[in-house]
Design a protein around this nucleic acid. Structure first.
Length: 330
DNA sequence: AACGGTCTCAACCGCGGATGG
DNA sequence: CCCATCCGCGGTTGAGACCGT
């Protein structure tokens, strides 16, 4: 048995809205609001429409302060950053772009941005360096030579599936705030001793702390309170910079997972990375002058108590949990 | 001008989650 | 707890616009 329809399709009008219908809907909502019930609204407003259709029309087209027309480069960059970090969570992405609707952004991504990204990348997936080149149009894409692919199941979303060596490189690192670094400066932070199988690690006595890779990331204020950002060494810090750093971090995590799952032919389950952050910025992390904090790699599921305790002992830090790509060992 | 292919984007669909009785 | 209802979201569709030949 299927799901009951939200309204009788034979009694409601469908398809494009007429100017008369628009004005009826606008007038009604401006006078009375939606009354907390979209389903009953069409009857009250004198519209032969489904309530869901009214809601969509209002939210995506009639509501005040909707921005139509071309997206700016800044908006493009925000979309690229957020897509790289959280994927197709259009409503969340829309929340960062005042006046834009999730539907608008989704359409824009599907028709323009995705092609833009793919045309700039040799891979048909969303590679980090392609993302990076959009985060910073001045960065140069540095590619490693192609080697045989891993046996990671293609059903999993894997941005490296077609080009597993297309990891974050200098182009990505340098895209952050114009800072120049190379991968030799970054990847020693990934501990070579991290256990291949998370079940081999003892999370009861904080050994996770030593098994992660060290990364200083100044995201705590962003997550704890969206209205407050920490400043960088120059006293200034923009939200886009935060997003770029977050993207950067996710890509480094991707890299780490990929390294650890190379050749693995079993099943993967979706899991979480637990990481907690300290203060300082990316520059300080790379140069080793900041307060490095631990990123706890590979702990699937909810956060472990040891890491929670660790976070609680650091007043200036916070525990974050990021749902990551489905690369985990099952 | 005519035609066919491609693109755009408003609108629809169905699912999962929240809520309330 | 269960169930019904509604909301919000992300994926998909298709009519009309646009473009190339």
């Amino acid at each position: 048995m299927g799901r009951a329809p939200c309204c009788d399709k034979t009694k409601v009008k469908r398809g494009p809205w007429s100017p008369e219908e628009d004005s009826k809907l606008r007038d009604y909502i401006e006078k009375y609001g939606n009354g907390g019930n979209w389903i009953s609204l069409p009857l009250k407003a004198g519209l032969r429409r489904c309530g869901k259709s009214c809601r969509l029309r209002w939210l995506n087209y009639l509501r005040p302060n909707i921005k139509h027309g071309d997206f700016s480069e800044e908006e493009d960059r925000i979309i690229f950053s957020l897509f790289a970090a959280i994927g197709s969570r259009w409503s969340i992405i829309a929340a960062h772009l005042p006046g834009r609707t999730d539907n608008d952004i989704k359409n824009y991504w599907n028709t323009k941005l995705r092609k833009k990204l793919l045309s700039s990348s040799s891979s048909s997936s969303y590679s980090p360096s392609a993302m990076a080149s959009h985060l910073n149009p001045n960065s140069q894409d540095v590619k490693r030579p192609l080697t045989p692919s891993t046996t990671i199941p293609s059903s999993s979303y894997n941005p490296y599936a077609e080009n597993p060596n297309h990891y974050p490189t200098k182009s990505l690192i340098s895209s952050i705030n114009g800072f120049e670094a190379d991968e030799k400066q970054i990847f020693p932070y990934i501990s070579p001793n991290y256990p291949q199988d998370p079940s081999l690690s003892d999370s009861s006595n904080n050994t996770w702390e030593a098994s992660g890779f060290l990364l200083n990331h100044n995201m705590c204020d962003h997550y704890n309170n969206h209205t407050s950002f920490s400043s960088n060494v120059n006293g200034k810090r923009s939200e886009i910079m935060m997003k770029q750093e977050e993207t950067m971090m996710m890509m480094m995590i991707d890299h780490h997972i990929d390294q650890r799952t190379k050749g693995y032919n079993g099943d993967f389950t979706q899991g979480y990375y637990n990481y907690y952050t300290g203060h300082g910025d990316l520059k300080q992390m790379i140069s080793g002058t900041g307060t490095n904090s631990n990123i706890n790699m590979g702990c699937s599921g909810s956060s472990s108590s040891s890491i929670s305790n660790l976070a609680e002992n650091k007043s200036s830090s916070s525990l974050l949990q990021h749902k990551c790509l489905p690369y985990f060992y099952s």
